[in-house]
C-alpha cells in the first residue's frame, strides 16, 4: 500500500509537469488548429535557461536563498522562452496561416530540429547535471515525500488557477475563446486576432518554461534531446484529455504521469513508454475526442 501511494505521488509530480506542457499544445491547437511540434523543445529551452541562471546565481551570490533562486530561475526562463516562442510564431507559423495545412506542421517540425540542434551546438551534446536545489524530504510512515514534489504540485496548481482565471474571466481569455471558435468572426468583431494568437504562444511558452525548470529541478539534469519524449507525452496528454480543453490537458497530464509511474512500478520500466503510446492509440481509436473534448460532428 505504501509502495502504491509512493508511486501515486511520483506519478502526480510527473503528471503535473506533463500537464503544464500539455496546456501549451492544447491552447495552440485550439486556437489555430496546429500541432506545435516545437513545443517540446520550448520546454527544453526553458530547462536550459533555468540551468544557466542557476549556474550564474550560484557563482555570484553564495548562499542565495533557495526560494529566491527558484523564483529568479522561473521568471528568467519564462521570459526567455516567451521571446523564443513569440519569434517562432512570427517567423515560421504566421506567414503560413491559412495556407496549406501541412506547411505549418513541417515548419514546426523544422523548428523542433533547429532548436534541438541549436542547443546541441551552443551548449554541447553532453548531459548537464546540477547539484540538487532542494533536497528536504518528509517521511509519512514508509511514504517519502520530497519538498521538490510538493513544490512542483503546488506551483502547478497555482499556475492552473491563474490560467483558468485568465481564460475564463478576462477580456484576453474571451478574445482567445472567440478566436478559437471563429477566427474571421472574432476579427470582424474587433478582436486583434494576431495579437491574441501571439499571446497564446507566449502563455504556452511560459508554462512550458515552468515545466522545464521543474523537470530540471526534479531530475537534476538537462540535455538538448530532452524536449522530444516529454513533448510527445505532453501532447499525448493533451489528446487524452481532449485536445482544445484546458482542464482536459491537466487531467491527461496527470493520467499519463500516473500510468507511467504505476506501469514502471508494477510491470516493466522498459515498456513504460510503450504503455503510454498504447493507451494513446486506444483512446484515440475508441474515443477520438478524448476524455473532456467536445465531440466533432461530421457535417454532410
Amino acid at each position: 500500500m505504501e509502495y502504491f501511494i509512493q508511486q501515486l505521488l511520483n506519478g502526480l509530480t510527473l503528471g503535473s509537469i506533463y500537464g503544464l506542457v500539455a496546456i501549451g499544445y492544447t491552447m495552440v491547437y485550439g486556437i489555430i488548429g496546429m500541432i506545435n511540434f516545437a513545443h517540446g523543445d520550448i520546454f527544453m529551452l526553458g530547462g536550459f535557461a533555468a540551468l544557466i541562471v542557476f549556474l550564474i546565481l550560484t557563482t555570484f551570490v553564495a548562499g542565495v536563498p533557495v526560494a529566491l533562486a527558484l523564483l529568479v530561475m522561473l521568471v528568467v526562463a519564462m521570459l526567455v522562452t516567451s521571446l523564443w516562442n513569440w519569434t517562432i510564431e512570427r517567423v515560421a507559423y504566421r506567414p503560413l496561416r491559412g495556407s496549406f495545412r501541412l506547411a505549418p506542421l513541417i515548419t514546426a517540425i523544422g523548428m523542433s530540429i533547429v532548436l534541438q540542434n541549436f542547443i546541441q551546438v551552443t551548449q554541447g551534446p553532453r548531459n548537464k547535471p546540477i547539484p540538487p536545489l532542494v533536497d528536504d524530504v518528509f517521511h509519512f510512515g514508509d511514504v517519502t515525500v520530497s519538498l521538490k514534489q510538493i513544490l512542483i504540485v503546488l506551483v502547478t496548481s497555482v499556475l492552473l488557477f491563474v490560467f483558468w482565471y485568465i481564460v475564463n474571466k478576462t477580456p484576453l481569455g474571451r478574445a482567445q475563446r472567440a478566436t478559437e471558435q471563429d477566427r474571421k468572426m472574432a476579427a470582424l468583431l474587433g478582436v486583434d486576432v494576431d495579437r491574441t494568437i501571439s499571446i497564446t504562444f507566449i502563455m504556452g511558452a511560459a508554462l512550458a518554461a515552468v515545466a522545464g525548470s521543474m523537470y530540471l529541478m526534479y531530475y537534476g539534469v538537462a540535455s538538448f534531446a530532452d524536449g522530444f519524449i516529454p513533448g510527445v507525452k505532453a501532447f499525448t496528454a493533451a489528446v487524452l484529455g481532449g485536445i482544445g480543453s484546458l482542464p482536459g490537458a491537466v487531467l491527461g497530464g496527470l493520467l499519463i504521469g500516473l500510468i507511467e509511474s504505476l506501469w514502471s512500478a508494477y510491470f516493466s520500466i522498459a515498456y513504460k513508454d510503450v504503455a503510454t503510446f498504447a493507451i494513446l492509440a486506444f483512446v484515440l481509436i475508441f474515443k477520438p475526442t478524448g476524455i473532456l473534448g467536445r465531440p466533432e460532428v461530421e457535417k454532410v
Binding site: 517567423v91 515560421a92 506567414p95 503560413l96 495556407s99 496549406f100 506547411a103 505549418p104 513541417i106 515548419t107 517540425i109 523544422g110 523548428m111 523542433s112 530540429i113 533547429v114 534541438q116 540542434n117 541549436f118 546541441q120 551546438v121
Partner: peptide
C-alpha cells in the same frame, strides 16, 4: 557535421515559407 541537422531544420522552415506547396 555538427551543423548538419541545424541547417536541415532551417532549410525546412525556409523552403516552406517561400514555397508552402
Amino acid at each position: 557535421e555538427l551543423y548538419r541537422m541545424l541547417i536541415f531544420g532551417l532549410a525546412m522552415v525556409v523552403v516552406m515559407l517561400f514555397k508552402p506547396r
